[in-house]
Design a protein around this nucleic acid. Structure first.
Length: 299
DNA sequence: CTCCAGGGAGCCT
DNA sequence: AGGCTCCATGGA
């Protein structure tokens, strides 16, 4: 099946490329042999694909017609609305952003970036793998996991691989995952997969809680500290107030928000959340992350 | 060569 | 609770 979604129907439009390549989702891949971080294949209308519940979904932005065009093994309209946060009103959200110069510059630079809603388990594993890793290498690791352990799906003459199930990764060995380049994260992935596969911690239990309680619960998983938990809260569970404190947010605190530096993760996170506008602070965090990471700020 | 990357676990007070 | 130290790997 195929279809289109008019960009003008999306409040604030969408920058598909930045949304999918800004390090919030590692489940989408730009089509072809090109890798993230390379120049090849970065045409404005490049295809991105993912596999969800055995279905292949491909989507691209056609600037000439200004639509999101998709092809999939199922009707993907509702799926894309959910996965790409297409119902978020970027104008309304931006209206909550404080007047700080750096925040306004960050929003100006990438306006159209949307916060994704990745499926829970894949999001969890990809952010466990993200520890002390660069964005491009995290993409590579997730692709390796899919191609090694994922289920293959054929679509329009090409092969695609879905993200492996909790049971599948729980059955993998630490040595196998180290061979894929996961390093010291390998045992974390195996153990957390087992906890999820056994139902000891469920998405329903986590997402039913208030934000900070949900973050706390996620840290009961192995390899999941407060920062990774915040990423899952923001990029999978739609807690749009979550502000993951990574090295770039530490840089932002040092440069622009020294008063936000607190004695604990929870305290600092709370202060920065407030400085970034509260309810949608996670949105602004992601714009700021992208702005700083790509070296656009002139300080 | 050294330094660093969307940190967290284990162990110590 | 709060502060160390160590943990793989590859690119600059």
């Amino acid at each position: 099946m195929r279809g289109t979604i008019p960009v003008e129907s999306l409040p604030g439009g969408i920058d598909l490329r930045t949304t999918l390549e800004s390090g919030q989702s590692y489940l989408w891949e730009r089509d072809g042999e090109t890798a993230y971080g390379t120049d090849a294949g970065q045409e404005e209308d490049a295809w991105y694909y993912t596999v969800l519940n055995g279905d292949v979904v491909r989507v691209r932005h056609r600037p000439t017609r200004d639509v999101l065009a998709w092809e999939a093994t199922t009707d993907a309209t509702d799926l894309l609305m959910e996965l790409l946060g297409l119902e978020d009103d970027l104008h309304d959200i931006r209206a909550t952003v404080p007047e700080d110069t750096i925040l306004q510059q960050a929003w100006d630079h990438s306006f159209g970036l949307r916060i994704v809603s990745d499926p829970f388990f894949p999001s969890l594993i990809s952010f466990i793998c993200s520890a002390q890793m660069r964005v491009e290498r995290i993409h590579r690791m997730q692709r390796a996991l899919r191609e090694q352990y994922g289920e293959r799906v054929s679509f329009m003459g090409q092969s695609y691989y879905g993200f492996p199930s909790p049971a599948t990764l729980a059955a993998a060995t630490e040595a196998e995952l180290r061979d894929l380049g996961l390093g010291y994260r390998a045992p974390y992935v195996v153990e957390t997969s087992r906890l999820i596969a056994d139902g000891e911690i469920t998405k329903a239990d986590v997402s039913a809680r208030p934000y900070e309680d949900a973050r706390e619960r996620l840290t009961d998983l192995v390899g999941v500290g407060p920062k990774v938990a915040d990423c899952v809260c923001l990029f999978s569970l739609s807690f749009l107030q979550a502000v993951p404190l990574d090295t770039w947010m530490q840089t932002a605190i040092d440069r622009y928000y020294p008063d936000c530096a607190g004695d604990s993760y929870a305290e600092t996170s709370r202060a920065l959340r407030s400085a970034l506008g509260g309810t949608y602070a996670g949105y602004t965090q992601t714009y700021l992350f992208e702005y700083l990471r790509t070296g656009q700020d002139k300080s």
